[in-house]
Amino acid sequence: MKLQKATQFGLYAVLELARDPSRQLSAIEIADKYGISSNHLAKVLRDLGRAGLVDAVRGAGGGYRFSSNSKRVTLMDVINIFEDIGSEASGTSDLGDGTDIGRALLVIRNEIDEITQATFGSITLDTLLKTMRWQRDVI
């Protein structure tokens, strides 16, 4: 599945900051690491700040710091700030949805959406960071 650019940037930023909650990073530092636009990332970081996931530290040497509980925040919580995944099949209706083939396809799309939501909703930031460490240790 393809996530929107803002969602992807939001996940990068929040995970990068949650990796070490005592560390402050600027939008430029994070953007450079992931090769993404710092202007776009600055907007994303403001959204993450409004959602209470990061704190902006002002002044010289300022930046952003993770400010939430990585054992409680799931990937789905971050994704929901930027987009509503799964709503296409479960919420609005498309042309043809009322036909027999449209309804049958809708059932399949709902099945995929439910699995996607269950997966993102069950992985906390802490679990993802821990899984990365385990995978690194195996290699």
Binding site: T119, G121, T131
Partner: peptide, 18 residues
């Protein structure tokens, strides 16, 4: 169960994946 977030999160935290 897909909607059993408590146990799904627990097993994920132990390193289990799809």
């Amino acid at each position: 169960a897909r909607r059993d977030q408590l146990n799904m999160s627990f097993f994920r935290a132990q390193g289990m994946m799809g």
